[in-house]
């Protein structure tokens, strides 16, 4: 477990910025308790500072996970957000879309969001911006990238893709083995 290098930090923040925008500041400089990002076995964790201090005695080999796992650094050196980050993103998300109950499960199986399943959408969402996807009961289900802007969405035919799938909570069941 170590702090992120400057490069890594830049990658992580850039990615987070796509979803939370300027709320990133609230994420890093929290009012309640100092939080930090740590890298452990190519995974990026977000946690209270007290937590990682207390976890210090645990050897690197034996430490499996701590705090909130928000993403991983791939072999290619890129940063991917994983579903663990969903709660953080949902709290601070700039752009959101809501799914109709009928297409909830379809998204939870890893499919893109189609126009037919789109219940609501925040205004002024640009194409290719990050969105957090909720169901109509405001339960965060995952996140993705908009394929079209809000205005374009209005005129689309029902089978057209509105948002590309990136992560969804169905992964907790589908890929439990690759969580850590």
């Amino acid at each position: 477990m170590r702090p992120l290098t400057e490069e890594e930090a830049k990658m992580v923040f850039e990615k987070l910025y796509k979803y939370v925008g300027k709320n990133l500041k609230a994420l890093v400089e929290r009012s309640d308790e100092a939080h930090c990002f740590r890298l452990h076995k190519n995974r990026v964790y977000y946690m209270r500072e007290s937590l990682f201090r207390k976890a210090a005695p645990i050897a690197r080999d034996n430490l499996v996970a701590l705090g909130t796992g928000i993403g991983k650094i791939t072999h290619g050196g890129k940063f991917h957000l994983t579903v663990g980050a969903l709660e953080l993103l949902a709290q601070h998300a700039k752009h959101k879309i809501w799914l109709k109950p009928s297409s909830e499960l379809q998204f939870l199986y890893g499919n893109n969001v189609l126009k037919a399943g789109l219940g609501r959408i925040t205004d002024n969402t640009a194409a290719y911006s990050g969105v957090v996807i909720f169901n109509m009961a405001d339960v965060p289900l995952g996140f993705g990238v908009m394929a079209r802007s809000t205005i374009e969405c209005k005129t689309l035919d029902p089978t057209a893709v509105v948002a590309f799938h990136q992560a969804d909570v169905g992964e907790y069941l589908r890929s439990e083995e690759t969580m850590s």
Partner: peptide, 22 residues
């Protein structure tokens, strides 16, 4: 078995856990 432990902790939104394998 730590895998299911990690997945469940993440799913349930547990942020104060340190998961170890000893």
């Amino acid at each position: 078995r730590t895998k299911s432990l990690v997945a469940n902790c993440q799913r349930m939104g547990v942020t104060n856990a340190v998961i170890s394998c000893y």
